[in-house]
Amino acid sequence: MNNKYQIYMLLLKARTFIALLAVVLFFGFMVSNFITVSNLLIMTQHVAITGLIAIGMTLVILTAGIDLSVGSVVGLGGMIAGLLLTQGVTFGDHMLFFSVIEVIIIVMIFGGLVGLVNGVIITKCGVAPFICTLGMLYIGRGAALLVNNGSTFPNLVGLEELGNTGFAELGSGTVLGIYIPIWIMVVMTLIAIYITNKTPLGRYIYAIGSNENGARLAGVPIIKTKLFVYIFSGVCSAIVGLILASQLLTSHPMTGNMFEMDAIGAAALGGTSLAGGRGKVLGSIIGAFVIVFLADGMVMMGVSNFWQMVIKGMVIIAAVIIDQFQERLQRKVVLMSRTAEVTGGKESAA
């Protein structure tokens, strides 16, 4: 009896991964060229965009918060990169241009600052994360549109004389045959996994999400921890803004619209509870793989975009339903193992 539950539990725990396998196998049979190295690389490059945002989002959700401003930060970050690369900064008569590396660092710092503002408003002013970041969603998108009055910054190739060429490398370049955005995703995932599993900060994040008052009484630095997760999320979004501007060689102010929903979907699919305190970064990444592979596979199959939206929604809801099953089953298994311990103890005593 107990064993049966254990197996169910294992299957449920690995369900995101099983879903991913199912997606890959289904499209592998249905679409020629789906399982080829080049296609898997291209799709993973798409995953990096959703995945990077999902990493930051997961940390925020683990503290029982939410960051709706990520998509806007993507758009605004890209626009700032475009502005710096094409027009530089003007001080009086002087125009200052930055190298690509400097632009990347500036935009990442900017993303962190947006996160910091979110964090400060949430912790110091007591505004609910949903409301605060919803406000920031509008502010960020409006600001992105204001940067160039609604227009794009096209052709971000840079100029040899200014020494700011090579921006395309960030989004489309490769290292050891693998696209740079994929490497970035891998590195950020490892950092986030290290933080959540190996550091006190990670424990604090889970503690706040499970029981904020309890955590406070236990001496967890609530404010610092929350500031960290929002800053981390802002930086992740800014990186995505840079990657997209680099891939398209254009900054478009509406880029990243609705990305927050894909990231939340990936986190939910990966078993992160929106109530906080439960979930894994790796799960969200696998969730991102499922969402993107599904979308790309349907494009390759020629499924209409309208159906794609319907199917994506159904998959996310199904994932959360299964999540509820797991929670219930988990309680049952814990109960059963306890009774087994108790009865087992009695027998040995007798």
Partner: peptide, 9 residues
């Protein structure tokens, strides 16, 4: 992104 995938197929 659609072009990426279609080009693969």
């Amino acid at each position: 992104q659609a072009m990426d995938s279609i080009l693969q197929a």
